[in-house]
Amino acid sequence: MGIGQSGSKFAISDLGFVSGGSKRRDLGLNQLILAEIGPIKGDIRRPVSCALIRLLQDPDVAVRLASCRSLCFLIGDCNVSEEDFNEFLPTCWSACFRLMEELQEFDSKVQILNLISVSMEHAGEKIVPFAKHLTDFFQKMWEESTGESLLQIQLLAALRNFVGSLGYQSPICYDMVLPILQKGIDINNPDELNLLEDSVLLWEATLAHAPSLVPQLLDFFPYLVAIMERSFDHLQVAISIIEDYIIFAGAEFLNRHASSLAKLLDGIIGNVSDKGLLSTLPIIDVLVQVLKF
């Protein structure tokens, strides 16, 4: 039975939704949500969101982290509507940025990144007015996470959501994203063993949401050749990336990278299974369409 439903053991007034609720009540709210006691439906979502946003600004770091976990659950698992939460985004993200400054432990930082990531995904293109603040945050986090591959993996996943949420307006974050992407897809990078998989996925997302190909993205294609020469672990994502390059840049792409593309396809055809060969057919089809014109 959900919080606040008829017959529930707890009433809304018991959970500290009203201004001035005690910290014990506030923590009780977190514990209830974290325990996933029933669905949070209808009119209950807004007061729950208000209470958790208030707790996210509490002086106690432990309370803020508990609120962070609860907000992730609320947004990700309770189907909270955009109208119920989007008005809280500026306060939520500002509180997350401040909290991140105080944290040292990896797990705690990941909790903050998870909340930022799930809230971006939920808000979609409504994050555009906040893009600069988010860009600055991710840039700072990346610079401070040098040598912390596990944290950078989480950052790459969050950046993928950031790019996806911005959609065709994603070029506004390219000054931050593209240097990070270039480092991650370079097999000569000392951290490539840890970062390559998530970097390739970020590459795919960046192309998928690009309104057009900027020169720097076009320059990245040789990195894909180097990746595929070493192994075919990322074959499906690589094929998606190749398709996007051909579709977006067409003749310009072929003029610059035709020999590299031929080398890459030759390597695939000569070394993968029948299933892998079938996966290259969309590339051939797109090439035929481009070469017709």
Rank of each mutant, 00 (worst) to 15 (best):
G2L: 09
I3A: 11
I3S: 04
S8T: 02
A11Q: 14
I12M: 12
D14G: 15
F17E: 05
G20V: 00
S22F: 12
K23L: 15
R24C: 12
R24E: 13
L27S: 02
Q31H: 06
I33L: 15
A35C: 11
I37S: 10
K41E: 15
I44D: 12
V48W: 14
L52T: 14
I53C: 10
I53V: 14
I53H: 06
Q57V: 13
L65Q: 06
C72Q: 05
F73D: 11
D77T: 06
D77Y: 09
D77A: 05
E82H: 09
D84N: 10
L89R: 04
P90Y: 03
C92A: 04
E102R: 10
D107P: 04
Q111A: 09
L113P: 00
L115S: 00
S117C: 03
S119F: 07
S119M: 06
E121L: 13
A123W: 08
E125R: 14
Q139V: 03
Q139A: 06
M141H: 00
E143C: 08
E144G: 05
E144Y: 05
Q154H: 07
L155Q: 08
V163Q: 03
V163Y: 07
G167K: 01
P171I: 07
V177S: 14
I180S: 10
L196Q: 08
D198A: 04
L202W: 07
A205P: 01
A205E: 14
A205M: 14
T206S: 09
V214L: 11
L218H: 07
F220P: 01
L224I: 08
A226W: 14
E229L: 15
R230F: 12
I239S: 04
E243N: 10
D244N: 13
A249H: 06
A251H: 09
F253Q: 02
F253T: 07
A262Y: 05
L264T: 07
L265T: 00
I268P: 02
I269F: 02
G270V: 00
D274Y: 08
L277E: 12
T280L: 09
D285R: 15
